[in-house]
């Protein structure tokens, strides 16, 4: 019963955004990392990098680490079905006006994160008009054992 209750709390989306915005809108001037309590306690966002490619496309990389290490923590993770941790992520791209750029392929990508492991979530902007991005991360219930 407790497990059911806990699982029910893990279906929210979580986002991380780049701090230095290029878009000219009234955006917050801080790096925005919002995660629910469950994801926050399991997946730590280590850093967010972006690089402009020679052809004007933007490549971003979000580095995250599964911080569920230690015997009791892993035991709890095993009981919860979180070991390894299953997440899904999706990038959303914004133009210089802060408008979302529709892409031909934007879907939730599943990823397995072993406790203590560091993963890098990469994406390349669909066209040179994209200047900013949002990364949404959620627990991937569909992949849980």
């Amino acid at each position: 019963m407790a497990r059911l209750l806990l699982l029910a709390c893990q279906a929210t989306a979580n986002t991380v955004e780049n701090e230095q915005k290029s878009m000219q809108v009234a955006a917050v001037d801080t790096s925005k990392v919002s995660t629910d309590a469950f994801l926050k306690n399991r997946l730590e966002i280590v850093r967010v990098d972006k690089k402009e490619l020679p052809d004007g496309l933007l490549k971003v990389q979000v580095t995250a680490r599964n911080v569920r290490t230690g015997f009791w923590t892993q035991l709890a993770s095993w009981f919860m079905g979180d070991n390894p941790y299953q997440i899904a992520y999706r990038f959303t791209w914004l133009d210089i006006d802060g408008m979302e750029v529709e892409t031909a392929a934007s879907t939730w990508i599943p990823k397995t994160v072993i406790p203590g492991d560091t993963v890098r979530l990469n994406a390349v902007s669909p066209n040179p008009r994209c200047k900013d991005f949002t990364l949404s991360i959620r627990e991937n219930d569909a992949a849980r054992g």
Partner: peptide, 16 residues
């Protein structure tokens, strides 16, 4: 299909 397409597109665009 969506995962294959998205990963393929990312790789192709990043390759230059």
């Amino acid at each position: 299909w969506q995962i294959a397409a998205e990963k393929g597109i990312n790789s192709l665009l990043a390759s230059g």
